[in-house]
Computed example of a mutant assay.
Amino acid sequence: MRSLVVLATLVFTTAASSAPVPKDVGQPVLYFSVREGDQSVFEVTGSSGTYDLTETVTKVVAKDGCMWVTVERRATKTTTVVYQVSAKGVSRVATNDQELAEPHALLKVPTKAGDTWTAKADTPTGPSTVYTAGKEEKVDVPAGKFMAIPIEGKITAQNGNGRIAIRTSWYAPNVGIVKMVYKVGDGVETRTLKSFKPGK
């Protein structure tokens, strides 16, 4: 009987030690898509109607301990945005080949509900954005269900009229934004992820 127990123990130990290690083990969690060819399609609904917005990762470069990710955005017009992605978060660093004076921090990781930070405008005369992190929650969109961190960005107009724009974006691991709600006055625009297709 004892020999059977010893044999069973050896078999279990050998199988456990030889089991393949998942590729994601030990890898940092990135709240953005960082593979060339990754494509996200969003449905955008607002005052101008409903239309699709397609974002495709066209280039990824490892630099300074980060991934520099170029995204082509196609809707009513085409724009190109470069993001700096790492285990510390996501920042916008360039738009349409115009490099920003400093990275605009969109998401900081790790973060907890109530954390705040301020990011300067993309242009020298633009207003800063005050970001506040929410608690991670489940988000249900046409592309599926995601656990995502909501980040509220509040922008106050500099012309003295006190008008405030609020943009809330939900970030999911390995995908990025899965939902966005943008409010200015009585106007509301929503963006929800319709599909996500990994690159090859």
Rank of each mutant, 00 (worst) to 15 (best):
I151W: 03
M67P: 00
V5M: 12
P173V: 02
L7C: 13
K108W: 00
R167K: 14
V11W: 02
K179S: 00
R92N: 08
P124V: 03
V109T: 14
V21L: 06
I164P: 12
F146A: 05
T13D: 11
N96L: 09
D24V: 11
W68D: 09
R35N: 15
Q39K: 12
I177K: 06
E36G: 07
Q98H: 15
P28I: 01
S195E: 12
A119D: 12
L100M: 10
V81F: 11
G89W: 00
T45K: 04
V34P: 08
D64K: 10
A101R: 13
A157G: 03
I177F: 07
I164Q: 14
T118Y: 07
K135V: 06
K77W: 10
N174D: 12
A94P: 05
A133G: 08
D122E: 15
F12R: 15
I151R: 00
V21A: 08
R2L: 10
A148W: 05
A143V: 03
V93N: 05
M67N: 15
T58G: 10
I166Q: 04
T9R: 14
E102V: 01
F42M: 03
E152H: 07
I149T: 07
F146Q: 05
M1A: 14
K63Y: 08
H104Y: 06
P110F: 09
V6Q: 11
T14S: 14
T116W: 06
S48K: 09
W68R: 09
T123G: 06
M67Q: 15
V139G: 01
L4R: 14
G160L: 00
K120T: 04
K183P: 11
N161E: 14
Y171F: 12
E136N: 05
Y51C: 05
D97M: 11
V34S: 02
D38N: 10
S33L: 02
V71D: 01
L53W: 08
A172F: 02
S48Y: 11
P173I: 04
Q39A: 10
P110A: 04
V81Q: 08
V82Y: 00
Y182N: 15
K183L: 05
G162W: 11
S86Y: 09
S3I: 09
Y182A: 13
S91T: 00
S91D: 14
T123L: 05
A8S: 12
L106V: 04
G37D: 05
E136P: 04
M147Y: 13
R191A: 05
A105D: 02
K23L: 10
V181T: 13
T116G: 02
A75V: 01
T54G: 03
T50L: 01
S91Q: 03
F146W: 02
N96Y: 12
V93E: 06
A101D: 13
E36H: 14
P22R: 07
E189Q: 09
T190E: 03
F12W: 15
V41L: 08
A143I: 01
A157D: 13
G185Y: 07
G176F: 00
F32R: 07
R74L: 11
A157S: 12
G37E: 06
S48H: 10
Q39T: 11
K23M: 08
G187C: 00
G185A: 04
P127F: 01
A19S: 15
E72M: 13
S17L: 09
T70H: 14
T13K: 14
I151P: 07
N161H: 12
F42K: 02
T70F: 08
V21W: 02
